[in-house]
Design a protein around this nucleic acid. Sequence first.
DNA 1: GACCAGGCACATC
DNA 2: GATGTGCATGGT
Length: 218
Amino acid sequence: MKDFRRFPVPTVFKIYQILFAHYGLQHWWPGQSEFEIMVGAVLTQNTNWQNVERAIGNLKQKKLLSINKINKLSVSRLAKEIKSSGFFQIKAKRLKALVNYLILRYDGNIRQMQKKKTAVLRRELLAIYGIGKETADSILLYALNKPVFVVDSYTKRIFVRHGYLSDEMDYNDIQKFFTINLPKSVRIFNEYHALLVRLAKDFCRTNPLCESCPIKAF
DNA sequence: GACCAGGCACATC
DNA sequence: GATGTGCATGGT
């Protein structure tokens, strides 16, 4: 039995406050529409965000960044347009699967989608080809404003290194850890995940031993 | 040239 | 259910 309450609310929240004080607002998710956020969530799978930005920029420039446009594109054409994001063949299929779902289930109307319950949406998203837990939760939190904590490899790495989580904990375990120990707030979940990514990019890369990490100040 | 980046599906045991 | 592998670009 894993003891998720070993580090109660004040600690997990305090770490959030420290990161926020250190880095400030991160303004996530970078994207001008709900659909753009969803596309970014798929394209960023195991991929540097800079490469994703190129791909999204290309789609925008060619006026292809819409549900209907992508629905009409062939997989091979779409793959060509998102090449810079890597894994482009498979990601083209994944994007097609996503827009197919949006059109079939919601007639391409994301506002309609937002009215549904979080648990229902999560099940639906996870059933789409190419959408796993992190991508589904990113879409729920950042595109649909649902209070779901997003776990990624950075989240685990950071909290394992600092001794708050054990290495054998999986996605569900880690998500539960944060959900139990934080107020259920879209704003906090949004900012916390963004801050962890910021910390990982900004600090962890050059300081693998975590020396002088802001989290250590706690 | 090696290594990494905001995962996922699928095969195999 | 756990573990291994393919997918691929662009920066460091």
